[in-house]
Design a protein around this nucleic acid. Structure first.
Length: 555
RNA sequence: UGCCCGAUAGUAUAAUGGUAGUACGACAGAUUUUGGUUCUGUUUGUCGAGGUUCGAAUCCUCGUCGGGCAACCA
């Protein structure tokens, strides 16, 4: 196959526009409303908008669509900027729709002067009632034919704060019988005596999305205004306003938003999870937010790769979360430092290993990356292995430790289990084993071949750490599509905490930017809750586990 | 019941009138001091019915199915 990847439909449009000379360069924008944190769905949009101008030349602006002061906050602005940067993109200009409130006001006046807008004294309910339904036409408002002068005066009074919230609106005069409901005299301006995070108390009227978004695109000379499918019906109004206002003709194109299995993407619902404490915050590692993925140990490279792999089209989709996991494993496998950590310890005593003796074994920092070098791990007579790596009555094809069975301790010796010691309750408290002195890694002259290799830690040298294991937040594939409250489908075991795991001592020096693979367990990173008295790790993602599959087959 | 989108393997996404391909998954095998990684192979698809054409996933018609539209949200 050729190295040339096929183009998605937006790339085709851009190439065509460049080829036929419609534009010399393209301009896109990423236009979040600062009313929540960015999620993985936004990452798709970010990669698209920035990716297009990176590939074809031009630039991308970051524009905050901050036209609704009651839901927007500076905290969100800051988090959004941080997230876009972290993903690896640099915007040309940092812009705000609120910067254009003055121009937008003038645009509205122009519409009034052209008899294309009017002030309506109807209440919200009355407007809704006159709107009609998708199958029935609407009715004209009794205020629809006010004189131009009256409209001008009233709109100015709206601006000057002479009316109460909700008492009047400015509406476009289009067609109350239009088959597209958005064209049935849409509201352009509403009165809100609310403090805005940037303009303060300067304004008490605020433009609606439809009267701000397209106009902002136009003011910024955005050539390709890329948004999600639900805005398709808005395009007719978008174009109408550009035509009537006679401003730069930005064009809107729509793509299907990302949906990820076993999670939700609605900002409103994510906010609900945060506010009602179902999660610890916007960056709780179980959340689908960018900040959560960052905290959890995902890399920007892996998220970008994911966005690239899922493609762009116009049909609704539900992407398997497994693809995201594949992408992060693929990257982490290349960069993660290998470490050994035991979560649920069983003590091993090597009966033929001299008491008090200690040695050091060497192993790869990362077998996928020779330049990462080697590290030393202390080895001694008493060790921990994970409880799941021993079975008293193993099934067939169980390659781990069992009575009379041999395994290799990773980078150290082959051992054999001689005796199982139990406490009064019948729980295994100790495994007495013998080691094969000639089987030392790198100098193995024993001639013994074993199928299994286990991770381990030396008890006198081990340090302890808290490990947080995350699973999908929801039990069902598509929580948004289920009946009833989506919160009923939350996975009750999405977080499991190992309060005291035993780790090799080198993890004492773990750094925040480093990624680790706990051998045979998964990929981990230091959590921000780490303090001088407590080391905390997050599991980014598990390793693929062929043994689980094998077990399922036989059961 | 009006208008607007869409429909290709399990999930995504290509093929732009000329051999239905790729990725993930699944399955089988090889390698392996991580049951990881890597490698090899296999499997599965054009929503339906007509039409145009030498030739249709692609163009046309009619259906079917899925989604969106009745916020002073974006």
């Amino acid at each position: 196959m050729s190295e040339e990847r096929s183009l998605n439909f937006l790339e085709e449009i851009v190439e065509e526009d460049l080829k036929n000379g419609r534009y010399k360069q393209i301009v896109t924008r990423f236009p979040p409303e600062p009313n929540g944190y960015l999620h993985i769905g936004h990452a798709k949009s970010i990669c698209l908008n920035f990716g297009l101008t990176k590939k074809y030349g031009g630039y991308t602006n970051l524009r905050f669509d901050d036209t609704n002061p009651t839901t927007e906050e500076t905290e969100y602005v800051d988090s959004i900027k941080e997230d876009v940067h972290w993903l690896g993109f640099q915007w040309k200009n940092e812009l705000y729709a609120s910067d254009y409130f003055g121009i937008l006001y003038e645009y509205a006046v122009k519409l009034i002067k052209n008899d294309l807008a009017y002030v309506d004294d109807s209440s919200s309910e009355e407007i809704a009632a006159m709107k009609g339904t998708p199958t029935e036409p609407g009715k004209d408002s009794p205020f629809r034919d006010r004189s131009q002068d009256e409209n001008r005066v009233l709109f100015e009074k709206m601006k000057n704060g002479e009316f109460t919230d909700g008492s009047r609106t400015l509406r476009a005069r289009i067609d109350m019988k239009h088959p597209n409901m958005l064209m049935r005299d849409p509201v352009l301006y509403r009165i809100k005596h609310a403090h805005h995070h940037r303009t303060g108390d300067q304004w008490c009227i605020y433009p609606m999305y439809d009267f701000a978004h397209g106009q902002s695109d136009s003011i910024e000379n955005v050539t390709h205004s890329i948004c999600t499918l639900e805005f398709i019906p808005h395009r007719e109004l978008y174009d109408w306003l550009i035509e009537k206002l006679e401003i730069f003709p930005s064009r809107q194109y729509e793509f299907a938003r990302l949906n990820l299995s076993y999670t939700i993407m609605s900002k409103r619902r994510l906010l609900e999870l945060v506010n009602q404490k179902f999660v610890a915050g916007w960056d709780d590692p179980r959340m689908p937010t960018i900040s959560a993925f960052r905290r959890r140990g995902y890399t920007p490279e892996s998220i970008r790769e994911f966005c690239d792999k899922i493609g762009v089209a116009k049909r609704e989709n539900l992407i398997e979360v497994g693809l995201l996991e594949f992408c992060v494993r693929e990257h982490l496998n290349k960069i993660a430092l290998r470490r050994m950590v035991v979560f649920d310890p069983v003590k091993i005593v090597l009966t033929n290993y001299p008491e008090g003796k200690k040695e050091s074994v060497q192993t790869d920092e990362n077998p996928e990356d020779e330049s990462a070098g080697l590290r030393d791990i202390p080895f001694s007579r008493e060790l921990y292995i994970d409880r799941e790596d021993f079975m008293e009555n193993p099934p067939k094809k169980y390659f781990r430790l069992a009575p009379g069975q041999m395994v290799r301790l990773k980078s150290a010796y082959i051992i054999k289990c001689d005796e199982v010691i139990k406490d009064e309750q019948g729980n295994i408290s100790q495994l007495r084993c013998s080691y094969i002195p000639e089987s030392r890694s790198g100098a193995d002259t024993s001639g013994i071949n074993v199928k299994g290799t286990l991770h381990w830690v030396s008890i006198p040298d081990a340090i302890t750490a808290e490990v947080r294991l995350y699973d999908r937040l929801f039990k069902v594939e598509n929580p948004a599509a289920e009946e009833g409250d989506f919160k009923e489908y939350i996975n009750p075991v999405s977080l499991q905490v190992v309060k005291q795991a035993y780790a090799e001592p080198s993890l004492m020096q773990a750094k925040f930017d480093d990624r680790y693979q706990f051998i045979r367990k998964g990929y981990f990173c230091l959590d921000k809750d780490t303090s001088p008295s407590r080391i905390v790790f997050n599991r980014t993602v598990t390793l693929k586990d062929a043994w689980i599959k094998e077990q399922k087959k036989s059961s």
